[in-house]
Design a protein around this nucleic acid. Structure first.
Length: 447
RNA sequence: CGGGGCGUAGCGCAGCCUGGUAGCGCAUCUGUUUUGGGAACAGAGGGUCGCAAGUUCGAAUCUUGCCGCCCCGACCA
């Protein structure tokens, strides 16, 4: 992509309302634009990140055996009356009346709808288990939206719903998602820690929040240091095999959010291993049994010929929130520092003297080669001054920068900068292309 | 939903107390000189001062109502 053709409205100054790094940089780097409280337009740069995150989430859901579908944003109130949540939900639900006076709502979640979909299509236990997911915009009319996309009113969520015959079988579905989540966040460069969460009316141990540590996190969290060093389940996990060991690996040490914190248990950890920090919740998985299937009569015929309500679980990932969480985890004073798998572009190519025949030609050549190799390049072909080009590349935070200017090109050299480490090196043009291509490909490898 | 604050050019702000021609920095446009870390000089454009009503000869400024946004708290993915 040529920067001259892209739409990238940058801000030199920080808008007054942006309090935390991710909010500040998303506005300054032209990723989003606020339309009203907690509602954002996703400008091209932000949109690219959102799509990258979404795609990683999708791939790991598919790997775990979940099946993608799409439910509408607008729902009929009737469904919610069936589950008796219509009155219970309160003002967070945005209620709408259509031209015929029918009560509608902008979905804050989809348990009711998926339950209705499931019950209309499944009659027998032989069709179980099933896992369905969708990635869709939701709306919760938060009293106080804040922190940019980290806590908006409109937000993009991935929601998976599992259907099993027994609570035991549901445990396997839960484990599948548990592992998919560890992998999903790890692929984005995030170290997520599953923490025990409140289980609601069902009880049991099947409820975890996936937390990413960050100074600006919303909640206080406590965990054992070693959880930060656990290895991830590999891509070839047999999701239909025994998953317990993977789950145990990540749940045997102490980890809890403020609400579930057990001071005594925490203090049994050796002092130097205690981590007390702030965290961002990026995922939440839980088993809720027959809560909706009973209320909405989502039954299947069991082996004995008797109707039983299905056992359900739901598993969410805050896709739009992750964009913010990633910046909270990866930034410095100058701007964002995207991990390659979620970067809006892999490489920024800086032409320091547009109009100079040799430099233009060198840049065009590098651009073509990188693109041909499947590396995504944002080519700064504008006539801006070098200082400005450096500053804005740092702000938008592409992981690699290749700079071509009169100084280096005279000796046939390009400057390659790693945005994460700040390290710069001068390489002959061809080597620079090869080096960066290898680095990018390496970082994109799924293990 | 309780408490506090703010709406003046695209962004950041001053002016309001004490009513009288709407300002500054950045950004934008033109020209010249610059050219490896957000350039310099000269010039130019851009504002129903959130909306409405009121007080007044006269309102960005005073009064009332409304709307929007932000911060702290409670709540939440």
């Amino acid at each position: 992509m040529y920067l001259s053709k892209f739409y990238l409205p940058l801000m030199k100054e920080t808008p007054a309302e942006a309090q935390i790094a991710s909010h500040r940089f998303m506005l300054r780097a032209g990723m989003v634009r606020q339309e009203s409280a907690g509602i954002y337009s996703w400008l091209p740069l932000g949109h690219r990140v959102l799509k990258k995150i979404e795609q990683i989430v999708r791939e790991e859901q598919d790997r775990a055996g979940a099946v993608e579908m799409l439910m509408p944003t607008i729902q009929s109130a009737d469904l919610w009356k069936e589950s008796e949540r219509y009155d219970a939900y309160g003002k967070e639900m945005l209620r709408i009346t259509d031209r015929h006076g029918r009560e509608m709502l902008y979905g804050p979640t989809n348990e009711e709808m998926i339950t209705a979909i499931f019950r209309s299509g499944v009659r027998s236990y032989k069709e179980l288990p099933k896992m369905l997911y969708h990635i869709q915009w939701k709306f919760r009319d938060e009293v106080r939206p804040r922190f940019g996309v980290m806590r908006g009113r409109e937000f993009l969520m991935k929601d998976t719903y599992s259907f099993d015959l027994t609570a035991d079988a549901a445990r396997q579905s839960y484990y599948k998602m548990f592992i998919a989540y560890l992998r999903t966040f790890a692929r984005m460069g995030l170290r997520s820690i599953p923490m025990k969460a409140e289980t609601g009316p069902i009880g049991g141990d099947l409820s975890h929040e996936f937390i990413v540590l960050a100074e600006t996190g919303e909640s206080e969290v406590f965990c054992h240091r070693d959880l930060l060093r656990k290895t991830m389940p590999p891509a070839n996990v047999d999701f239909d095999g025994n998953l317990e060991s993977y789950v145990n690996e990540h749940t045997s040490l102490y980890a809890a959010t403020e609400e579930m914190h057990d001071k005594e248990a925490f203090e049994k950890i050796p002092e130097e291993a205690r981590v007390s920090a702030r965290g961002i919740e990026v995922g939440h998985i839980f088993f809720f049994g027959t809560k909706y299937s009973k209320a909405m009569k989502a039954n299947v015929l069991g082996a004995e010929g008797k109707e039983v309500p299905v056992e359900m679980g739901s598993y969410g990932i805050g896709v739009s929130r992750l964009t913010g969480a990633l910046i909270e985890a990866y930034h410095d004073e100058q701007g964002c520092k995207w991990p390659v798998p979620v970067a809006p572009f892999h490489v920024g190519l800086l032409n320091l003297k547009v109009g100079d025949e040799k430099i233009d030609a060198a840049c065009a050549g590098i651009y073509r080669q990188l693109e041909a190799a499947g590396v995504e390049v944002l080519y700064d072909d504008t006539r801006a001054r070098p200082g400005e080009k450096f500053a804005r590349m740092d702000l938008i935070g592409l992981p690699w920068q290749i700079t071509i200017g009169p100084r280096g090109l005279g000796n046939g050299l390009a400057e390659v900068k790693n945005r994460h480490t700040g390290q710069k090196q001068e390489l002959p043009l061809q080597e620079a292309v090869g080096f960066v291509t290898r680095q990018v490909k390496d970082a994109l490898k799924v293990v």
